[in-house]
Nucleic acid binder design. Structure first.
Lengths: 138, 138
DNA sequence: CTCAGTGATAAAGTAACTTGACGATAAATG
DNA sequence: CATTTATCGTCAAGTTACTTTATCACTGAG
């Protein structure tokens, strides 16, 4: 039961992100791309590092990076400190999209805080943070 | 930020479900199958009805039903009241798997309740129920 | 009795992966 | 040093979980 309770708001967040992106003209982004832009974002990280953080394979990430690079959201530049490595650099377009995503989340959070009473929403976040701490160790 | 906070426990629930299923011998089930067994389960429902409930296309569901039927978790029987329709009947094996899933969730919920203090966990559930009520209307 | 509507599903195509392999570089070891 | 070993990004091929399109079987309203 708890699974469904948690999943519905997750989906709502994703839907809102994508709706706002499409509204603002970023119609070439789809659900799969959102994971790449997930906090704290891919800027100035190496593909392997990011793949590890996102819990997907290097190849899966590389596939997404290929699309996002072709769409102009980021670039893969050679890493000056390691000749075999690359560094992901988010472009202006990418940063703009990230801003839209962040705004969408804030917008939704405010709406929820208002409807749920601000202090109860704070409680919810606190509880989720604590729950995450537990879940982290598994 | 809230997105990540919600997603981590969702993933933990799914991981636990699948781990327990595999431990108990249901090694032929994978993440995609879990949605079919999601509360209140597929027993005695028509494919179209279930697809609508799970928010997936009839074809996508039918694909999963085909696998689950071949694996012996359910059967598609002709509906006595409607000659063109079918009814999903969960087999003994299917019911056993559902029980394992439910136990896995309960087990995890108890652990969380204990570690978070029972009344705080109740609070969390109450808040999530309220949040779901808000999210439902979109 | 006809005919638009609905239910299941088969067929073909696609997106988002996976596994495996590669050449290039870096770091560890002898 | 020299050489083995590990790591980095990427390509290629296969798989999976879908989607879109199309069909056939049946229903129920007029």
């Amino acid at each position: 039961m708890i699974g469904a309770l948690l999943r519905m708001p997750v989906d709502a967040v994703h839907r809102r992100m994508l709706d706002r992106l499409h509204e603002r003209g970023y119609t070439d982004l789809d659900p799969a791309h959102l994971v790449v832009f997930q906090w704290p974002g891919p800027d100035d990280t190496r593909p392997s590092e990011l793949a590890a953080r996102l819990q997907i394979s290097k190849q899966a990430l590389n596939y997404l990076l290929g699309q996002l690079e072709r769409l102009g959201y980021l670039e893969r530049c050679p890493d000056p400190h390691d000749q075999r490595g690359k560094r992901i650099m988010v472009t202006a377009r990418g940063r703009a999209a990230i801003r839209v995503i962040r705004d969408a989340v804030n917008e939704l959070e405010s709406a929820w805080a208002k409807q749920l009473e601000p202090d109860r929403f704070e409680q919810l976040k606190t509880l989720l943070v604590d729950l995450n701490r537990l879940t982290a160790g598994s």
